[in-house]
């Protein structure tokens, strides 16, 4: 009889009993609705132990890869610990480099702390040690890099970004928790086309996902659309052009809402541009990052253009106003 550990308590699961029913029998009522593997309400995460594959039917691949499963379908075959999130240790890393990428975005490069692992495209929660102020920033690096890279946008009067821009220096120790997030590339079906689209520092995770896909030998077309209000807000243009020159399957389109676009770029609304350029998105794996209105708009357009809901991965950034 497998033991299920949840919030520090152990519960025995009877043979042929689902985890959802077993916990309910012990008085632990996980949120649930259809109890048939359709509505995803009872999605739970295995922190230890492996859920049976049959309990991950219909769970998005990037979530399944992190141990998420449906409690209503799960008949445990081994001891498991379940919960909503694993507790991250607090990491400390030395700042190796700090460089402006354009007038309002700075690139930080950090040491990789002992024991820290991540997937390209995930994010960390950076902490200002003096008062524990915390903000989420995506990783733009890939695990093969010898550093962690963050792109931080200057928010007018933003407490964290002002501190990052004005006060921290190379050699300082920075603290963070993580990683988190389910917007990342998984190997397999490397012929399928990828759409990467986002605005502003939404490029950070997309840059990571792009380099990760190339590193893992993705052979199908990869289309990156990076948008800003105007050309001055774009960044890493030269690096991305170099990658496009070096990899024939990779196509880079800088996009601006106002004014002239750079060479090879487009002027217009980023929400509409991928569909205009690519037409049908049937069969695409889609990654969307940036402001929530843009991500939500792109998600709907991508879906209507034929991408399957299971294949649309997104990371809407929430900006904390000053």
């Amino acid at each position: 009889m497998p033991t299920i550990r949840f919030e520090g308590q152990d519960y025995f699961c009877a043979e042929d009993e689902t985890l959802l029913d077993s916990l309910a029998r012990h008085g632990v009522m996980l949120p649930s609705s259809c109890r048939a593997g359709a509505c995803l309400t009872c999605m739970t995460r295995a922190l230890k132990g492996t859920p049976p594959k049959s309990a991950q039917l219909g769970v998005k691949d990037t979530l399944a890869a992190q141990g998420y499963f449906l409690a209503c379908l799960c008949k445990p075959v081994e001891d498991m610990e379940i919960g909503l999130a694993s507790v991250s240790p607090r990491y400390t890393a030395r700042l190796l480099g700090k460089e402006l990428l354009n007038e309002s975005i700075v690139r930080l490069r950090l040491d990789i702390p002992e024991g820290f692992t991540y997937r390209a495209g995930q994010f960390v929660n950076l902490i200002r040690a003096s008062d524990e102020l915390t903000r989420s920033y995506s990783l733009a690096s890939i695990p093969a890099d010898s550093y962690l890279e963050l792109h931080i946008k200057k928010v007018p009067e933003g407490r964290m970004s002002t501190w990052v821009f004005d006060e921290i220096e190379v050699g300082d120790e920075l603290s963070f928790f993580g990683p988190s997030g389910d917007c990342f590339y998984l190997p397999g079906s490397s012929e399928r086309p990828l759409l990467l689209a986002g605005a502003g520092t939404g490029l950070a995770p997309l840059y990571g996902i792009l380099r990760d896909a190339l590193e893992q030998g993705h052979a199908g077309p990869i289309h990156l659309f990076h948008a800003s209000l105007a050309t001055a807000g774009l960044y890493l243009i030269d690096e991305l052009r170099r990658l496009a020159d070096a990899h024939e399957q990779f196509h880079y389109t800088p996009c601006v809402l106002h004014g002239d676009a750079p060479d090879g770029g487009m002027q217009g609304n980023i929400v509409d541009i991928p569909g205009q350029v690519l037409g049908s998105l049937s069969g695409y794996r889609v990654f969307l990052c940036g402001d929530p209105p843009i991500v939500n708009g792109l998600r709907q357009k991508s879906f209507l253009a034929g991408a399957s809901m299971q294949d649309i991965h997104s990371d809407p950034f929430v900006f904390t106003p000053a």
Binding site: S33, C34, A36, A38, C39, L40, T41, G58
Partner: peptide, 8 residues
């Protein structure tokens, strides 16, 4: 998810 439950 809700629509999947409905179709099911």
């Amino acid at each position: 998810g809700k629509q999947k439950a409905f179709l099911t």
